[in-house]
């Protein structure tokens, strides 16, 4: 066990995920359910917002994941560019669809929450707008993966796009802030979060976030396994075609 890169060997990756996934699935399902059930049914209603506040347990974790998944894709793309581990590129590809779904969940729950809070489903508020832009980036990234036939070329080009896209996503975030100071509250959860959110909301929120993270890890491993199998199939197909000549 010399280096951590051993884990990036496709065969090793398949072996350890095969053992880890059943456990991981059960654990993440439990944590996910506990977090949401605790959040939905065992917290008091907010004195101002009533029960609507509880959508918070879907909205905040999914929004956090939407951003962090892009970060994970950036890291995975860098690893692919520098070290050429196929598993890394495929993990980035697998993560994109999950990231896009998280962005959609954050947008939709935000809209549902926004109606009673601000009286509107949609407002061109910097945070909302940024998430819409993030959604566009996810769509573009996935579309590029789909469009390129050769898997290695696709991995290279999407990695470059992810790198450049990250810079422009940050720029957009800044530009959008500049363009419109919005009505969205500041981040509800940060290191000094206790100031914003009372403990009774805070603990289930932490569990819900942990649930979302575990859910993401489980899904990304599962999807990466699928992608590896798809790559093997592709390689077999190529081999047959070459030999058939």
């Amino acid at each position: 066990m010399a280096s951590i890169w051993e884990w990036a060997n496709p065969r090793k990756f398949m072996a350890w995920t095969d053992r880890a996934l059943p456990v991981l699935s059960v654990v993440s399902a439990c944590i996910f359910v506990i977090g949401l059930v605790w959040g939905f049914f065992f917290t008091p209603d907010d004195y101002r917002q009533g029960a609507t506040v509880k959508i918070f347990y879907l909205h905040v974790p999914s929004a956090m994941m939407a951003i962090n998944i892009w970060g994970m894709m950036l890291v995975a793309s860098l690893i692919w560019i520098v070290r050429r581990h196929h598993v890394s590129a495929l993990a980035a590809k697998s993560a994109a669809a999950i990231g896009m779904t998280m962005t959609l969940i954050a947008l939709v729950t935000g809209a549902i929450w926004g109606k009673p809070m601000w009286g509107t489903y949609w407002e061109w508020d910097p945070r909302l707008t940024s998430f819409l832009i993030l959604l566009l980036f996810y769509i573009g990234y996935m579309a590029l993966w789909e469009a390129i036939e050769n898997p290695d070329t696709a991995a290279d080009l999407t990695s470059v796009l992810c790198l450049v896209g990250s810079v422009f996503a940050l720029l957009s975030r800044y530009a959008v802030n500049f363009w419109n100071q919005g009505l969205h509250q500041g981040a509800s959860l940060s290191l000094d979060a206790q100031e914003n959110v009372a403990d009774v909301y805070w603990y289930p929120a932490l569990v819900a976030i942990a649930g979302f993270i575990l859910l993401f890890v489980t899904l990304v491993l599962l999807r990466t396994r699928t992608e590896i199998r798809a790559r093997r199939l592709h390689a077999l197909d190529m081999r047959e075609r070459v030999q058939g000549q």
Binding site: I133, L136, G140, V164, G165, F168, S172, V176
Partner: peptide
């Protein structure tokens, strides 16, 4: 699809 989001800033 790729270029227009990059034009936003």
């Amino acid at each position: 699809l790729l270029v227009l989001p990059l034009y936003i800033p």
